[in-house]
Design a protein around this nucleic acid. Sequence first.
DNA 1: AAACGGATGGGCT
DNA 2: GCCCATCCGTTTG
Length: 199
Amino acid sequence: MPQTLKKEFYEATTLQIAKKLLGTYLIHESPEGKTIGRIVETEAYLTDDAACHASRGMTKRNEMMFGEPGHAYIYFIYGMYHCFNVVTAKKGIGEAVLIRALEPVTGIDLMRERRPTVKKEKDLCNGPAKLVLAMGMHKNLNGVILDKKPLYLLDHTAFGAKSPSTKDIVATTRIGITQDAHLPYRFYLKDNPHVSKKL
DNA sequence: AAACGGATGGGCT
DNA sequence: GCCCATCCGTTTG
């Protein structure tokens, strides 16, 4: 029986949670319909890591990162995109996991309507801003709890897939950052075609 | 297939 | 003013 990810799921380090989120499912029930994607790529952002928005203290932009674990942190970037994170550390710390890629599972026609220029299914959600568009997420979901409608996470059993084992997970450097760029804080499912960039 | 640059606007080192 | 956890179409090799 699939479970939504609850408080206990987040009783772990941010790096552990970034790996544990691989193979779980993100569900968005929007007015246009339901879309579901399997998480296949994540990045961890720690509070003492210069690439992390929270590393220089709380601001209006990043305040949700300092909230309770299991909530959404959605930020605006490059003048036209949004990216979606799962808040991980205890309230007041400021850590999160960026969701970088999904394997489309349900509502693929709706994802295509939302991203009409995309030709191949594997290009629908293979990037942090692409998946936000395909899933129909918006800044108004910033700060929502991720265990109920309209936005929630289901564990890896939800669609009968096996839980990824350690040897299926690749750890490597994060994408698009300049500070602390050497840290191996990106994780993805080996051999999954929906990952944004391989080694 | 890789590299490059333009789009576009909020936040602040 | 400059930077930015991006994307995409175009150019280059």
